[in-house]
Amino acid sequence: MDVLGLPLHPLIVHAAVILVPLAALGALTIVVSARARARFGTLVAGVAVVAAASAFAAMLTGPLLADEIGVAGSTRIARHQQFGTWTPWPTLVLALAVPLHLWVRRPGGERGAAAVLVGGVIVVASLAALVLIVLTGHAGATAVWGS
């Protein structure tokens, strides 16, 4: 799959590599800071949704590129594909949990167990997304550029 002669997967990957860490770090920030939540909460929620979409798009376009360039099933690409299969899922959790957190923590809203639970989910999902995007990117770069 190409866009203007360029493979789609590397183009989408660049979006995921930027947006997933931004979403994760933004989500961590709004969990711990009411001021940041009030000022940037909606922005973080939007970035989380676009980050999840880009992570899933990267996961779906990767096998197409591997087939196109003849490396599908190779050991060079296997580790990258393994990490790439997991990366979108914590990002999806962020895309769902951040708006829920904003709703639970709205002025006059719940500040009890629900807020703590959703905040905990965001912390775990953010850390998982950060680790997985780094591992996936490193494995992909190693597969393309060598060890």
Rank of each mutant, 00 (worst) to 15 (best):
M1Y: 15
D2S: 04
L4T: 08
L4D: 06
L6A: 03
L6S: 05
L6V: 12
L6E: 08
P7Q: 06
P7W: 07
P7V: 01
P7R: 03
L8T: 05
H9F: 00
P10M: 08
I12F: 01
I12T: 02
I12L: 10
A15D: 05
A16G: 13
A16I: 09
A16Q: 14
A16Y: 03
A16V: 13
V17M: 09
I18L: 12
V20R: 02
V20H: 12
L22H: 11
A24R: 03
L25D: 06
L25W: 04
G26T: 07
A27C: 13
A27W: 02
A27Y: 04
T29D: 14
T29I: 06
I30Q: 00
V31K: 02
V32L: 01
S33C: 09
S33P: 11
A34S: 15
R35N: 15
A36F: 11
A36R: 13
R37Y: 12
R37N: 09
R37V: 03
A38E: 14
A38F: 09
A38W: 04
A38T: 02
R39L: 08
F40A: 11
T42R: 14
T42Q: 13
T42W: 15
T42L: 14
L43D: 14
A45Q: 01
A45N: 06
V47N: 03
A48Y: 03
V49E: 02
V50Y: 10
A52F: 05
A52P: 06
A53N: 04
A55D: 00
A55P: 06
A55T: 03
A57C: 01
A58R: 08
M59K: 06
T61C: 08
G62A: 09
G62S: 06
L65M: 13
L65T: 11
A66F: 00
A66N: 01
I69Q: 09
G70I: 03
A72M: 10
A72P: 02
R76A: 02
R76D: 00
I77H: 00
R79K: 15
H80G: 00
Q81Y: 00
Q82Y: 05
G84F: 00
W86F: 05
L94I: 08
A95W: 00
A95F: 04
A95T: 11
L96T: 10
L96N: 07
V98I: 14
V98A: 03
P99W: 05
L100N: 11
L100V: 14
H101K: 12
W103Q: 13
W103G: 07
V104A: 13
R105Y: 04
P107G: 15
R111V: 15
G112R: 14
G112N: 11
A113T: 15
A114G: 05
A115N: 07
A115I: 15
V116R: 15
L117A: 12
V118A: 10
V118N: 13
V118M: 04
I122A: 00
V123I: 12
V124K: 12
A125Y: 03
A125D: 02
S126L: 09
S126Y: 11
L127N: 14
L127V: 14
A128W: 07
A129K: 00
A129G: 09
A129N: 05
L130W: 11
L132E: 04
I133N: 02
I133V: 15
G137T: 11
H138N: 15
H138L: 06
G140K: 01
G140H: 01
A141P: 02
A141H: 05
T142M: 07
T142P: 03
V144A: 15
S147Y: 03
